[in-house]
Amino acid sequence: MAEHELDLAALSRVGMMRQKQPGYYVMRLKAVAGDLKASELACIASVAEKYGRGFVHLSTRQGVEIHYVHSDNLEKARLELQEAGIEMGACGPRVRVIVACPGDDSCRWGNIDTKKIARELDSLYFKQETPSKFKFAVTGCSNNCTKANENDIGVRGAIEPLWVQDVCTDCGLCIPLCPVNAIERKENDEGYSYTTDQEKCINCSICTSLCTTNAWVAGRKGFTLYIGGTMGRIPRFASVLKKIVETEDELYQLIDKAVTFYKENGRKKERFGHMIDRIGLENVKEALLGKP
């Protein structure tokens, strides 16, 4: 097929980007939550050998890209990948591949099943058209390995620590462990108590994970929901829409409202966060959460 006959916008919808070298394309593959099976990797390797230049590029968002695929081979390569169960990623003004850390599946700090949420968000939103590119990230805890607040929508596992008097031995370890000095020991009539300052608490899991007698447990568990982050040309850290969303149902409802609001109010090529700045964060929060 001749270069001029290719519809570049249509190609970008299926994760293919024109390189600066005439006739050559990047094939961006989809790996939800950064997971690929070994068999899928083997197929990617073979396609890269056969149609690319024998290497793959790992993108900053858990993507795998095969570079230097000639336009004549794009369809053949895509079909071979598809046969192995590999879907194409997305480029352009639409919802991109959902990134996630390993979460509570294998990480000691993880508070939530990040992969499950990423797969759900993938099935709900992947490739949907949006005013500008739209990125989701799911991260298991406050360590924020997947940078929830650098994405248009960020979901971060969060817990509210609860002190269990019966098993506390008053060793005091939690006080220096807390990264934001939110834990305080108070003397009172019954002896002592440990409390957290909810203003300071970043809802991480250090106290609950490291207390040797398990005197800190997760009280409320849920998700911190971020909106409007971007690290592009005009960086903007995401704003917290809600510090602890307690159920998955509420999480998906709020996300749906946020995406719908952006689709209706975002200007062409305007990122979600920049739309929020234009309309005003408080106004957007009110539209999504209702009047406080």
Binding site: T169, C171, L173, T212
Partner: peptide
């Protein structure tokens, strides 16, 4: 904690 030791005081 992983080794099962006890922290008495910090």
């Amino acid at each position: 904690k992983d080794s099962g030791y006890r922290i008495v005081k910090v």
